[in-house]
Simulated scan of single mutants.
Amino acid sequence: MNNMKFIGLALLCLFGVGVSAQEVIPLYSDYKIPFAKDGAEVPRLTVFRPAKDFSRGTAVIVCSGGSYGGRANSVEGGPACRKLAEAGITAFLLDYRVPRSEWMERKEVVPLTDAQRAIQYVRENAKVYGIDAGRLGIMGFSAGGHLVSTVGTHLSSTLLDNPKGTSLRPDFMVLVYPVISFSDSLTHEGSRMNLVGPEITADEIALYSNELQVTGQTPPTYLTSGMDDRIVDVRNSLYFAAALKQHQVPVELFLYEKGDHGYGVFNLKAKLQWIDDCIDWITKDRWKR
């Protein structure tokens, strides 16, 4: 194989068909990073643009899971962004800060602040990316799903500077085998420990149990989980879906009989894939009220 063919094949494998090379943006390029201590990691967005002239004008911010102790970008966020971009949806992979006391003050509010900043940035730069500021969703896997559901249920809670008054409410949410509840019977212990810590109070448990925080303003939501998930109990998704229904918020629930935890965008135990159904839900505006 000659060098030019090899380079072309490598680029196809790296970026996927019809997906532009990624652009990496510091999340707080125009702001001081809130709550950061010296030597802390710098949160960022990686942009996955659709092929030229194929953009649908919709954008999705993607948050990988990792128990609030890391970010599983290689198996969750990255593949999801490529699938979205191939479907004409501009995707933004968010490297939110992992909550660690040695790197930041008030670690429990830092991931939410970063996610809200990502929404703020994308909305304020919608024209730059050729997207509609009113067609902005956010997707989260596992603990990233807890972060995303927090974004959608704590709409009046922000410590982010927002001088332009930009809406921090996503237009829709996608939650993939999400941690939703911090209650003892439902939570993923590692995620709860990493975000808040061992001295969590009853009030904090209720505050971060997002099935209890749903309102009529919570965005329309697409949920997928495996019924056999032994790491994050499927009842997290079921309880959240039930709360959305009670508040008349549109919800789509895609359950697998078998899937375990961490299947990402492709469940090897299933024929039909949630990501294809979800992209249809997004692009056909099934999330609109």
Rank of each mutant, 00 (worst) to 15 (best):
G144Q: 05
I89H: 03
A87P: 10
Q116A: 04
Y96F: 15
I138K: 01
R135P: 01
E105D: 15
L93P: 00
A91Y: 07
M104D: 08
I89E: 06
R106T: 10
G130S: 07
L112M: 12
E86Q: 15
I119H: 00
T150F: 03
M139I: 02
L94T: 06
D114Y: 11
L84E: 00
A91H: 09
P111G: 04
E105C: 11
Y121N: 02
S149W: 00
E108M: 11
G137D: 06
G134Y: 09
T150E: 08
V110Y: 14
P99Q: 11
G145Q: 14
P99C: 09
V122S: 04
Y129W: 13
V110R: 12
I89T: 08
I119V: 15
T150L: 10
R123Q: 08
C81R: 01
K127E: 15
W103Q: 15
Y129K: 07
F92G: 00
V148T: 15
F92T: 00
A87N: 10
N125T: 07
E105H: 14
G130N: 11
E124R: 13
K83G: 01
A115H: 05
E86P: 01
K127Q: 12
D114S: 07
M139A: 13
V110F: 13
G88D: 09
R106Y: 12
V98I: 15
V122K: 06
R106V: 08
L147P: 15
R82T: 00
M139Y: 02
G88R: 11
Y129V: 08
K127I: 08
Y96A: 04
E105G: 05
D114V: 03
R123M: 04
E86R: 02
Y129R: 07
Y121S: 02
R97D: 10
Y121L: 07
F141G: 01
Y96M: 01
V109P: 05
Y129G: 06
